[in-house]
């Protein structure tokens, strides 16, 4: 597949950054951050792919009978998903508090510091 999967990952990252820059709603911005993180999943899986490879699970596969994709990056992608979910949860909790204390979720309307 050459370099195309890597370029796709880069494209997803740029699209997410565009969303973050132009965002007028923090919940939308958190969604954009999740998209940015998903570009790393594409990158990891692209790095680990092997032509005509199958999943590295031997429950219905004789060891050595087929090429396998790289399990190390798949484990990293799992870690990535978990961290992404926790970051999203914390940011959404912060957004709820912002809405309560400042009455807005528009990042461009948040200019003053308030205790």
């Amino acid at each position: 597949m050459g370099v195309w999967p890597y370029l796709a990952a880069g494209w997803i990252l740029l699209v997410a950054l565009y969303g973050l820059v132009t965002s007028r709603n923090l919940i939308h911005a958190v969604g954009c951050l999740a998209v940015a993180q998903s570009s790393t999943y594409v990158m990891l899986l692209a790095v680990g792919y092997r032509d005509h490879g199958t999943a590295p699970v031997f429950s219905d596969l004789r060891p050595g009978s087929r090429p396998l994709v790289d399990p190390v990056v798949q484990a990293l992608a799992l870690t990535d998903v978990v961290v992404g979910a926790t970051v999203t949860a914390l940011l959404l909790a912060l957004t709820i508090q912002l809405r309560k204390r400042h009455g807005t979720v528009d990042p461009q309307a948040l200019t003053g510091l308030r205790g």
């Binding site: 597949m1 050459g2 370099v3 195309w4 999967p5 890597y6 370029l7 880069g10 692209a46 790095v47 680990g48 792919y49 092997r50 032509d51 590295p56 060891p63 090429p67 396998l68 994709v69 790289d70 399990p71 190390v72 990056v73």
Partner: peptide
């Protein structure tokens, strides 16, 4: 990206060791 090992290549030393 053009300098990276191509996606789908046969060389995965860490993967082989993990298996």
């Amino acid at each position: 990206c053009t300098e990276m090992p191509r996606s789908g290549g046969a060389s995965h030393p860490y993967g082989d060791r993990a298996v």
